[in-house]
Simulated assay, not measured.
Amino acid sequence: MELRIPANDSRVTQFVLLGLTDSPALQPILFVIFLLAYAATVGGNFSILAAILTKPRLHYPMYFFLGNLSLLDVGCITVTVPAMLRQFLSKERSIPYRACLSQLFFFHLLVGTDCFLLTVMAYDRYLAICQPLTYSTRMSWGIQKASVSMSGVFSFAHAVTQTVALSSLNFCGSNVINNFYCDLPQLFQLSCSSIQLNEQLLFLAAFFMGVAPFVLITLSYAHVVAAVLRIRSAEGRKKAFSTCGSHLTVVSIFYGTGFFSYMKLGAVDASDKDKGIGIFNTVISPMLNPLIYSLRNPDVQGALKKMLMGK
C-alpha cells in the first residue's frame, strides 16, 4: 500500500491509519482476536443491562448507573473496533477527513460521559454508606436521571469544543496517523498550523473532566473508608467494601489509561506503545468492565445466573 503525502500547498482531505501491523500473516489472527473481543464486550455489557432491567432486586441507583455505564462501553468500542476490523480485511486504510472528525467526536463524547458517570457512582456510594438516612431523598429517581443527563450534556460540550477547534487547524503535510483510530494527540502532530489554543483547550478539559472528578472520587472514598472502618462487624465491612471494590477497579483502569494516553502531547513521534495504550483504553477496558462487576458483585452474579438459567 502506498501512503500518500500531499504537497505542502494542498489541503489534506483524508488520513491514512497505519493500524496495528502491516504483516499479512498477523492480520487474520488479529481480526479473529478483536472480533471475539468485540463480541464479548457487547455480549457482556448487554447481559448486565438485561439483568438490571429484568430483575427488580437490581432496581437501585447503583445499578441504574451501571446500566448506563454498560451502554457507554458498548458505544466506545463500537466507535473504534469495527473500523479496525475493516482495515484487517482490506488494504484500504484511508479515512475521510470528516469521518475522522466524527470518530473523534463520538469517542470523546462517550469517554467524557463515562468520566462524569464514574464520579456520580462514587457519590452514590458515599451517600449509601455515609448518609444512609438521607440516601433515598438525595438519590431519588429524578436526581438519577438528571445526573446521567448532565453527564451527557457536559461531555457533549467538551466533544463539540474539541472537534470544532480541531477543524480550524490546517493539515497540509503528511496525512499518515500512526494509530488505528483518530484522536487528538496524533492529529496535533500532523497539523501545519499552531496548536497552542487546542492544547490549552485540552488542558482545561483534562482539569474539569480528569483532575476534578478524580479528586471528587478520592474524597468520596476517603469518607467511605473512614465510615466502613467504624463498622464493628467484619461481615458488615466486607459487604460494604464489596459494593465499592468493583467501581474502584474500573476507576483505576479508566484514569490510568487516560493519563498515559494524553500525558505525551509534546512528543514529536507516536510510538507503538501508544497503540498498546489505545487498545487498552478502547478495547480491553470496555471488555473488562462487565467481568469486573459480575465477579465482585454477588447481586449481579445472582441475577446473571438466574437470567441464563431462565428462572
Rank of each mutant, 00 (worst) to 15 (best):
V120P: 00
P185D: 12
H108F: 09
L17C: 06
L204V: 09
F260V: 14
L169N: 12
N68K: 08
I277S: 06
L26K: 08
I279G: 00
Y255F: 15
L229R: 13
C100G: 10
S233T: 12
A39N: 00
S23F: 02
L104H: 03
M309K: 13
S220I: 06
V268T: 11
T243R: 11
S102E: 04
I253Y: 06
V79S: 01
Q200P: 00
V12H: 03
S90V: 12
A159N: 05
I48W: 01
K275I: 04
F116M: 09
K273Y: 10
V12P: 03
G75R: 04
N68D: 11
S233C: 08
N198V: 05
S10C: 02
L104N: 03
A222K: 07
A222E: 06
T113E: 13
I284L: 15
C172Y: 02
R125C: 13
V153C: 09
R125H: 09
L36Y: 00
V300Y: 00
L117N: 05
S102N: 10
W141E: 05
F156W: 08
L291C: 10
V268W: 04
Q301N: 08
L184H: 10
L216Y: 02
V176D: 05
Y293V: 11
G256W: 01
A50Q: 11
Q27A: 14
K55G: 01
F34I: 08
A234M: 12
Y126D: 14
A99V: 04
G266K: 10
L110Q: 01
Y221L: 03
T78F: 01
F31L: 13
L71A: 12
A50P: 01
L202I: 06
Q14A: 10
V283L: 10
A206R: 02
V211F: 07
V283A: 04
K311L: 14
F188L: 13
K55D: 15
E92R: 03
P286S: 02
S149R: 07
S285C: 09
A7E: 13
G75P: 03
D274Q: 14
F203W: 07
K275R: 14
R86P: 01
